[in-house]
Amino acid sequence: MNPIRYERRRYTTGQTPIEKLERLSRELGGPVISIKRDDLTGLTAGGNKTRKLEYLVADAVRQGADTLITCGAVQSNHCRLTLAAAVREGLKCQLVLTEPEGGYDPQASGNHLLFHLLGAEKIEVIEADGDMHAAMDKLAHELASQGRKAYLIPVGGSNEVGSLGYMACAEEIEQQAWESGTPYDYVVTATGSGGTQAGLLAGFWARNSNTRVIGVNVSRDRQSQEAKVLELLGSTARTIGLKGEPSPDTVQCEDRYVGPGYAIPTAEMVEAVQLVARTEGILLDPVYTGKAMAGLIGLIREGRFAKEDQVLFLHTGGSPALYTAPQLFLP
């Protein structure tokens, strides 16, 4: 037996709920939409990275690390949750952040505020096009010279170990579908670093599920994103011993809702965030779930789904980013 799938910390109590979005479904006149509330996972303010960190931090603890090092944007949800996991485990945490357009503001709100509140040991800010992995390696070497041991976590927690978090989530969705008698035809999720989508695909593959996963890109183009997810799906499958190679046809990404680029607002995103807030009282975020929901709305409006289809939207969290751009939503 390969033990890797069982080496896991537990940061969330029980399953995250699935709720039907009846008012939103009526408003759009489309399929039956439900939402998987992974914004309610454990650790500070929740989000999809919590699931990945359950496996990544277990690996770090197993290796005897005393410090987690990771990287991301100045408002990175992943950095927030990695730091929160370190606090929970009594570890130190250092962050490598990329400078945003317009320059770095050390007094920034949102997740950046939480980095300081949670007590990041060190924050290294590099140029937007800088080499994050080289910067993390440098921090790790500095710690090693002090007799400490770092564990490096890639952007988004998206490697074979981190993807196991969403393999477990796919199995959780299958269990909830069985309990409710509601099999899901589609899961729609934001896709960026790729680990969430690859993990879901691996999990449904392992369960012989017919559920299809549609990733809505938040950064790169469709071809690049599908190749990235497919590569990670294949390596994750090999890590856990799934037989065969994944078919490229199983990876579906939509790049029409990225807009000008990562974390750059779009009118469709603003509409989606407002619509879900005003029909269901649920907060999305402007970087990930807002664009993913804009993608789902766009696909519904163009007739991608049948009216009877059961579509599950994965809420990956990120609401602290709302408070960094109030001008987008104020009259």
Rank of each mutant, 00 (worst) to 15 (best):
I153A: 00
L40S: 12
L314S: 07
A321K: 08
D131N: 14
A45W: 14
G295W: 01
H315T: 01
S319K: 10
P265M: 02
G281C: 15
M167D: 05
P260G: 01
S319E: 13
T16E: 02
K291Q: 00
S319H: 13
Y55D: 03
G244K: 02
D66G: 11
R256H: 09
L201D: 03
Y186M: 01
Q94E: 13
E226Y: 10
I300M: 06
Y151D: 07
D221V: 11
L56S: 07
G290D: 04
G30I: 04
G194R: 04
I300L: 02
A267I: 01
G318V: 02
C71E: 11
Q225R: 10
H315V: 09
D105Q: 13
G90S: 02
T289V: 07
P260H: 00
T324P: 05
G156P: 00
M293R: 05
I264A: 06
E124K: 10
E7K: 14
T316H: 08
A140V: 03
R301S: 01
G261V: 04
L114A: 05
D131C: 01
A168T: 12
Q310K: 11
K20Q: 15
L200W: 08
T250K: 10
A60I: 01
I300V: 11
D309T: 05
N210Y: 12
H112E: 10
T189G: 09
Q63S: 14
L139G: 10
A177Y: 09
Q63D: 12
L230K: 09
T189Q: 03
N48T: 06
V276K: 15
S163F: 03
R9W: 08
G295S: 02
T196C: 04
L232I: 00
L81C: 03
F305N: 01
Q175R: 11
W205T: 15
T82Q: 10
Y166T: 06
G110V: 05
R304W: 14
Q176F: 13
R37G: 04
L81H: 02
G147K: 08
T12W: 08
C253Y: 09
A325E: 12
Q310F: 08
N111L: 02
A227T: 10
E171M: 13
R148V: 04
T50H: 10
A325P: 14
I214P: 08
V61E: 07
L114S: 09
T250G: 12
G234E: 11
